[in-house]
């Protein structure tokens, strides 16, 4: 066991566990966005940073391993400042309307994204931005990642105006879950975006429609088409939905399915992240193969 100190109180975690593990054990509420239970920490959003005594800069609690005797502060002015600014940066550049967690963090940290100016309109050329070049801003609007929604298949929708570039979808599509490698982070800096090769549409890419990227997306940038369409029609009713856990009938692996049902129709399918078999992952059949249940 490793013993260290959090806000003046001792906490013990197993060797190899992170500061975040310790914080959760202590019940200290810590915001996270790019962190995923089933993925290796990308530690890119920096909203979970904490102050470690003696360190020059703040540390991401999600990835920093706990060390004996470490003195961690989660409530210092520096910590609150960075968390607030990170949330402001995201809220001023990204559409967080389907990311209730992020919105709650913004309220908690009194983030004021409006002080950076009114958001700039969507950029249809965002996918083709060249690394190392940009148009000089006038400062009258705040640059955003807004871009047209991508609807290029029947199963799911990609709305990268909502993307906070947490890397989770890329990691889930790549060597951490699916090993399909259909998507990547392309471009650089503020113009970095999730893309297929040469921005080809999903049906032409390597995508196998497992939907495991949707499962890990923290902001709703990746969404079931069924959910997207209901939201567009103003009929999405998360409160009125029931979730039924069942076992996927297609093969013998035994994946658990959580069927999200609204008005007696399946509107999306997930799998519990803590399920031994799936770790939240499914294949196209389990994820999307439910139409026959409600077919004519």
């Amino acid at each position: 066991m490793v013993e260290f100190e959090v806000d003046g109180e001792p906490v013990k975690v197993f060797e190899g566990q992170t500061i975040l593990d310790g914080l959760r054990k202590k019940g200290i509420d810590t915001p996270t966005l790019c962190y995923g239970e089933t993925l290796r920490p990308a530690n890119v959003c920096r909203v979970c940073v904490v102050e470690i005594e003696g360190a020059r800069v703040l540390a991401p609690s999600c990835s920093r391993k706990a060390e004996p005797g470490m003195k961690v502060r989660t409530d210092s002015e520096r910590v609150r400042h960075s968390r607030r600014l990170v949330l402001e940066f995201l809220a001023s550049s990204t559409d967080l309307s389907t990311a209730p967690e992020a919105e709650a963090y913004c309220a908690e940290y009194e983030a004021a994204p409006e002080r950076y100016g009114p958001p700039a309109p969507p950029d249809p050329d965002r996918d083709r931005k060249r690394a190392g070049h940009h148009l000089e801003p006038d400062g009258l609007t705040a640059a955003t990642v807004y871009a047209p929604v991508k609807v290029d298949n029947e199963l799911y929708v990609r709305d990268y105006s909502k993307c906070i570039l947490c890397y989770k979808c890329v990691d889930a599509c790549g060597d951490q879950h699916q090993n399909t490698f259909a998507i990547t982070v392309a471009g650089r800096g503020f113009d970095a975006r999730i893309s297929t090769e040469y921005v080809v549409e999903l049906p032409e890419s390597a995508c196998v429609y497992c939907g495991n990227c949707i499962a890990v997306c923290p902001t709703g940038a990746l969404m079931f088409k069924s959910e997207h369409d209901l939201r567009a029609a103003g009929e999405w009713d998360a409160e009125g939905q029931t979730v039924t856990t069942t076992v996927c009938p297609y093969c013998g692996v035994g994946c658990n399915l959580d069927l999200h049902v609204q008005d007696n129709r399946i509107v999306k399918v997930t799998s519990p992240a803590d399920h031994d078999v799936t770790q939240g992952n499914l294949c196209i059949k389990g994820r999307f193969g439910f139409q026959h249940v409600q077919g004519p």
Binding site: N43, V86, S93, P137, D138, F190
Partner: peptide, 23 residues
Amino acid sequence: RDESCGQCVPCRVGTVRQQEALA
């Protein structure tokens, strides 16, 4: 702004917001 790799939020967005404020 041009040279930020874009990985972490403080630098990816911070360099842009800094540039806008200067502008």
